[in-house]
Design a protein around this nucleic acid. Structure first.
Lengths: 229, 229
DNA sequence: ACGCACAGAATATGATCAAATTATTTTGAG
DNA sequence: CTCAAAATAATTTGATCATATTCTGTGCGT
């Protein structure tokens, strides 16, 4: 047991030596979530192999995973691209988030530890700073972190999976919207959410989240209507 | 280039020459949905390669896709298995279906053509026959078809994706339950659903679906409580 | 404008390497 | 001397890559 013979040069540069396909998946996922890939943009497998310096098998698997999650779209002929949302898609996303997010926030309010609340507060602070700096990518990242942290606190694996899956679908479009209107005019209800959670008022937290969701998603819808005109 | 030696027996028996990874995916998906794989059962990649006579790359991709959909579970060490649901999972599934299914049924009622309704009716009939014959797999199959047909009629791509994803999660457990209690004692509300849809009473259809969902899922919950005792 | 050929990209296979589980052997205590 | 626990050996399984094949879209020539 204690031998640990064989490879000794393991922990040289930290981390746990994740398999390549997982790393690729995370990388591609982030690229989609935080807008490195635009809606409609084709995603070639060979493009990624040399862009990420990886073999094609791991890339292949990452792409399949993301297509299964709706983050990428199969185009019949063997091409894959980032989906372009239409009005119908947006409506469905709003509907689904309007149900999922408040529900998760409600659960989160009941379960959040003080550490959790502090963590959320720090995430919201980082988000504000990103807005001030006009750092769009960082803003998107912190905003995502804020919401997924709430999902995590809610401790509802399947519901959280569903909610995070929705983010993958509107991530690219969200980037486009924010890039257009700038980070200055991006109001959110995060302070209300935090206040309600601190006060352990689950219903109020759910309401605040709902407003936040509607506010954000409606901006996406409007921006989409303009651009598709 | 024009050699074309080697394989010549290509288009002998029709079909559209789907890529292997799609075929494998469908096959594995059906195996999960209709209970060829039990909860907790390990899914080895090499096992599938020779069981299905396929290369390992397509199998790999199919497995990744299904893990992304929650139909398979990553076991930390690099193994994959069919997830075993706990009480919490079941509750979340019930909750999600209780919202999704009625909503989709409501939309479906508004959009169903007469052909659609006839199709649903025939699916329900086939289901009844499967019950009479005691053909469990066929029952599960027709039941799934019935519900997914409603999803399709609703014409809400994202919501339907979510709903079908849930089926993948409770499929194996559903099989266990039905295998235990037999096909005789499997009541459903399909007749009520059909009646409501024919009458174009969307609210009634939504209610009927909701009852059907609760009825079915509660059976899974109870059966699970017993077996985990 | 139509068809043919070509380039590029995706699919699929098998080989190779690494990791983990299982089986076997060895060792030590009672 | 027997049994059990640890260490080692062997087998199985997963991960990755290099390569061959097939398909799609496009441009050239008639």
């Amino acid at each position: 047991m204690n031998k640990s013979a064989g490879k000794v040069e393991v922990a040289t540069q930290g981390q746990a030596a994740l398999p390549a396909h997982q790393v690729i998946y995370q990388t591609l996922r982030d690229m989609i979530l935080f807008g490195d890939l635009a809606p409609g943009q084709p995603v070639t497998i060979q493009g990624l192999t040399d862009q990420l310096g990886a073999g094609m098998t791991p890339v292949r698997e990452a792409i399949r995973r993301l297509t299964a999650e709706g983050a990428l779209e199969f185009q019949g002929n063997r091409r894959v691209c980032v989906p372009t949302l239409n009005a119908e898609n947006i409506s469905e996303l709003i509907l689904a988030r309007q149900w999922l997010d408040p529900h998760l926030a409600l659960r989160a309010t009941e379960r959040a530890t003080l550490d959790d609340l502090a963590h959320l507060k720090s995430l919201d602070h980082a988000l504000d700073q990103a807005i001030v700096r006009g750092d769009l990518r960082e803003y998107l990242h912190e905003n995502y972190q804020f919401h997924t942290k709430i999902y995590a606190i809610a401790d509802a694996q399947i519901l959280a999976d569903l909610a995070e899956g929705l983010w993958l679908r509107f991530g690219p479009s969200l980037r486009v919207v924010c890039g257009r209107i700038g980070t200055q005019s991006l109001p959110d209800k995060h302070k209300d959410i935090l206040d309600a959670m601190h006060a352990r008022d689950a219903e109020a937290a759910a309401r605040a989240i709902r407003e936040d969701v509607i506010q954000g998603m409606e901006q996406v819808r409007q921006s989409l209507e303009v651009s598709s005109k």
